[in-house]
């Protein structure tokens, strides 16, 4: 694969990483820690929202992030023809 192509592939990968890690940070450190008090004024069922993110929600978001990344990268690998045969 040409050098130029490799650079584009890597750049795209880094873009995905930045976006997904931002979500990772916001769901755990954001909703679960920094803004918990503000979110706690919202209630869903018996859960205060900030507390729910800290003890439940962030973990669900983590799982979703990984599977989205897997799907994005599988597609990207094919697009740039660097997937494994």
């Amino acid at each position: 694969m040409s050098n130029h192509n490799l650079q584009n592939y890597w750049k795209k990968n880094l873009q995905y990483l930045v976006i997904l890690l931002a979500v990772w940070f916001l769901s755990s450190y954001g909703a679960g820690i920094l803004f918990t008090d503000a979110l706690n004024s919202i209630k869903i069922g018996g859960f205060k929202l900030g507390f729910w993110f800290a003890q439940q929600g962030s973990i669900y978001v983590f799982i979703i992030i990984i599977f989205i990344y897997v799907a994005l990268m599988n597609k990207l690998d094919k697009e740039f023809d660097v997937d494994e045969k």
């Binding site: 997904l20 679960g32 003890q55 962030s58 973990i59 983590f62 990344y69």
Partner: peptide, 20 residues
């Protein structure tokens, strides 16, 4: 609530593992 440090701390690392 403070127990969340273990819940998030011991699961969030897998995102770093998978992505980085």
């Amino acid at each position: 609530y403070d127990g969340a440090v273990y819940l998030m701390g011991w699961t969030g690392g897998y995102v770093l593992l998978a992505l980085l």
